[in-house]
Design a protein around this nucleic acid. Structure first.
Length: 504
DNA sequence: TAATGTTTATACTCCT
DNA sequence: AGGAGTATAAACATTA
């Protein structure tokens, strides 16, 4: 059954943390009140604040969230450059709202893109509600907090400096699930990611290689060749339905990933501005202490990117920040291939000069793909998905979505099953389903679930916390509440019992 | 020719 | 320590 952790935003293991964080927030709020007033109000600059229409109004910026619930306000003290022109709303880009699965994507990929405005890495005002109160961080999800990279702190949609803490597979899943179609093209995946994650708009386009690599390698993804009469290049991709089904099952698991990654493509842009120590990362002693307390509370600090070294040397911190590719305290520096590129010739045949990095380019979409992308910009309707489950379209029985019994690998022809998506048909899984071939898919789905659940829920900050139905739980925000799911479970249990009785 | 897709290799983190 | 999962890089093949 569904984890109860979905209901309790602050499970046992998180209570202490909550208190500490809130305490730190209160202290920080006092410290930062002066700066709070310094921040001139420029609502017109907070374009991302505009809410998406419909059920996916998850793009509310930090401004839209509850200012009174600041919990990490002390992070405002972290400022790579002093940029008086940067409004608090822009500062809120780092912590604030989430990329939206649906709703109105920017008309331009760069719309509301701080990077294009030279906005530095300047954390804004997260809210308590946005920090770990959200469902994605409750229960097993609290594991994200130790990463120090709570997704609710960062507005990945507009912040070009921080890499989303999601695996590529998750991003692909998100793109696919945001689509109203059962299959999308590679370019649409690119497009969705770049529109929803500002980081990738400015990152070296090698991430696209990784996307393709994931699509090819990950068994979750199935390639659907184009019809012969279908124009366009490349095939379509979709999620193996057996994994899509598991979106509704299982517990969350944190993602293993370096906590904070600064877009290396922006480092060069940032570095000149921050090379001046006078304009460098400004961290007050109070905030350092608060951050340290927070790190101690969370056990991991704000990730490699916000490591406060001995003596809390701001410059060291800056260097760590700008060094990018935080490697979890393993010394920073480029990881993986980047280093190998330097140290090992690899198959590239040592000495072969690396390709000059290409500029990120917006994939050119065919009209057909544009239409498809239009669907991508549409809603990411969990209600519909849940409704599908509740209506029985999803396999809910043996090994089904809501069953603790793992689903079996699908038959080959199962690939014809469509991804369970809102507005689209949802095929039942083969009843003989069992455990997935590996742990990856489950993790992936859980992560995707985690990643997408909160995308639906900007409510944490702008709703009354005391309201019984606004506990920032995606299920509670959904038209299908947890009771319904329990009712469903009861019904299923009853059905199973009756069948057992019949057999006996 | 560029986009797409496949494969291989390496490095890193986390878990057992 | 080793395996699993993931990220990154690159070479190469295919296709529109």
């Amino acid at each position: 059954m569904l984890s109860l952790s979905c209901v309790d935003p602050w499970p046992e293991g998180c209570v202490g943390l909550e208190e500490e964080v809130v305490t730190a927030a209160m202290q920080a709020e006092e410290l930062d009140q002066e700066q709070e007033h310094r921040d001139t109000q420029s609502p017109q600059e907070s374009a991302p604040c505009s809410l998406a229409s419909g059920t996916t109004s998850s793009s509310g910026s930090s401004l839209c969230l509850d200012d009174s619930l600041t919990s990490l306000q002390w992070l405002q003290e972290f400022s790579i450059v002093s940029a008086p022109h940067v409004s608090s709303h822009q500062q809120g880009a780092l912590f604030g709202h989430q990329p939206i699965m649906g709703g109105d994507a920017p008309s331009s990929p760069l719309a509301g893109d701080p990077a294009t405005m030279g906005t530095p890495l300047t954390p804004g005002k997260p809210t308590a509600a946005a920090f770990c109160r959200a469902p994605a961080l409750s229960g097993p999800l609290a594991g994200l907090a130790p990463h120090g990279h709570c997704p609710h702190e960062v507005d990945y949609r507009t912040n070009p400096h921080v890499k989303p803490p999601y695996s590529y597979a998750t991003l692909i899943c998100m793109a696919m699930q945001a689509s109203n179609t059962s299959k999308i093209t590679l370019s649409c995946i690119y497009q969705w990611i770049t529109e929803n994650y500002c980081y990738f708009r400015h990152a070296d386009p090698t991430w696209q290689n990784s996307i393709r690599h994931n699509l090819s390698l990950n068994k979750c993804f199935i390639k659907v060749p184009r019809e012969k009469d279908e124009p366009g290049k490349g095939g379509f991709w979709r999620i193996d339905p057996q994994y899509a089904e598991r979106l509704l099952s299982g517990a969350y698991r944190k993602r293993r990933m370096p906590p904070v990654r600064i877009n290396p493509a922006l480092q060069a842009r940032l570095r000149p501005a921050t090379s001046d120590p006078a304009r460098g990362l400004s961290v007050s002693v109070e905030s350092q202490q608060l951050l340290q307390e927070f790190e101690e509370a969370t056990g991991a600090g704000l990730g490699a990117g916000l490591v406060l070294g001995a003596g809390h040397d701001p410059h060291l911190t800056e260097a760590t920040l700008l060094g990018g590719w935080g490697s979890g305290g393993a010394g920073g520096g480029p990881r993986g291939g980047a280093r190998r590129k330097q140290l090992v010739g690899g198959r590239a045949g040592g000495g072969v000069p690396a390709k000059a990095p290409r500029r990120a380019s917006s994939p050119l979409l065919s009209p057909e793909e544009q239409r498809e992308l239009g669907a991508l910009k549409g809603s990411f309707d969990w209600d519909a998905l849940l409704d599908s489950a509740l209506s029985g379209d999803l396999s809910l029985d043996e090994g089904g979505a809501l069953s603790p019994i793992p689903a079996p690998p699908p038959a080959e022809d199962d690939h014809d099953h469509a991804l369970a998506l809102p507005g689209t048909r949802v095929h039942a899984a083969p009843p003989q389903a069992h455990a997935p071939p590996s742990g990856l898919p489950r993790d992936l789905q859980e992560e995707t679930f985690l990643a997408t659940a909160f995308l639906q829920g900007p409510w944490a900050g702008d709703e009354d916390e005391d309201a019984p139905t606004t506990n920032a739980d995606f299920l509670c925000s959904s038209s299908v509440n947890i009771e319904q799911l329990f009712d469903l479970g009861d019904a299923l249990a009853g059905d199973i019992s009756s069948k057992i009785d019949a057999l006996l």
